[in-house]
């Protein structure tokens, strides 16, 4: 394993993204009830994770450093790593599985092992994966590495000390909204932070970015998993949400009926 070179006042960031089906108009399940039907869909990463990559790229553009994109998944997940390289990340790392679904405990353990000796100052994640929504991988990685951690962040400021660049000095100020109030956290580096959509607006990949991503080598490490405490048995589409709305009318003529309904619902002043 190659540790990142220590360069003062820069920051070495690793961003973890997960390959998931691209869901358009509807979502359906395979006949055996075990997977999302992907015969008609491509693959992508969660918007939260795309924002995490954008944030990392912006930070390193500002203060210098490097961005590594890591994913754990089947060989095809290299495509999602390349998508992120096209956004400006410099290095790709694939923890290659045999394609079976991994749970959050095994995923976190494998990610922690892979990043442990690489000298990252900051590990960025999405707040939750789009498909399984476990809400836990970043926190588990943080504990496995003994690092401070905060999740669901929508505002991030990084201050690196003279010794940063993998040596772990510096700090992050992280903010998020909670129940209408802004919560602020301050964490020493190295740290684990998960972010949400809204922290920035991700850029579109540039043509040179895409060309560079296509040629880049994605470092690959094979990984395998043990069992998980949470066992999936079946996936299903929730009972029809199609209520088939009752029409209250058209245009402004419907306003009295609408006021009447509001009255019934008890929401009028």
């Amino acid at each position: 394993m190659v540790a990142n070179p220590v360069v003062a006042n820069t920051v070495q960031i690793c961003v973890c993204v997960k390959r998931v089906p691209m869901v358009g108009g509807a979502i359906s399940v395979t006949p055996d009830g075990l997977e999302v039907d992907v015969t008609m869909s491509g693959f992508t990463v969660s918007p939260h994770e795309e924002c995490a990559v954008e944030e990392a790229v912006q930070v390193t553009e500002r203060i210098g450093g490097s961005v590594t994109v890591l994913t754990l998944g089947p060989p095809e997940a290299a495509a999602q790593v390349r998508d992120m390289l096209a956004l400006g990340a410099g290095h790709g790392l694939l923890l290659q599985t045999d394609g079976a679904e991994w749970g959050p405990v095994a995923t976190a353990a494998a990610i922690a092992d892979a990043v442990r000796d690489r000298g990252f100052d900051l590990l960025l994640f999405g707040n939750e994966s789009a498909d399984t929504g476990g809400y836990q991988v970043p926190v588990r990685v943080a504990h496995a590495l003994g690092l401070p951690c905060v999740t669901g962040i929508k505002r991030l400021e990084i201050a690196v000390g003279d010794g940063a660049g993998g040596s772990g000095s510096g700090s992050v100020r992280a903010g998020r909204e909670y129940r209408g109030a802004e919560e602020l956290f301050e964490l020493p580096l190295p740290a684990v932070v998960s972010v949400k959509e809204g922290i920035n607006l991700p850029r579109y990949p540039s043509l040179p970015g895409r060309l560079r991503a296509k040629r880049a080598t994605v470092e690959t490490i094979e990984v395998s998993q043990d069992g998980e405490g949470l066992r999936k048995e079946r996936l299903r589409v929730p009972p029809a949400t199609a209520k088939g709305a009752q029409l209250l009318g058209s245009g402004v003529e419907a306003v009295p009926a609408l006021v009447g309904l509001f009255d019934e619902l008890g929401v009028l002043p």
Partner: peptide, 25 residues
Amino acid sequence: PIVTKADYAIIGDLHQIIPALVEAI
């Protein structure tokens, strides 16, 4: 799609309906 997923629907321009609704309330 929202029209099948909602409980009630009004077909029309919100720019007319919302101000009228505000006035009515």
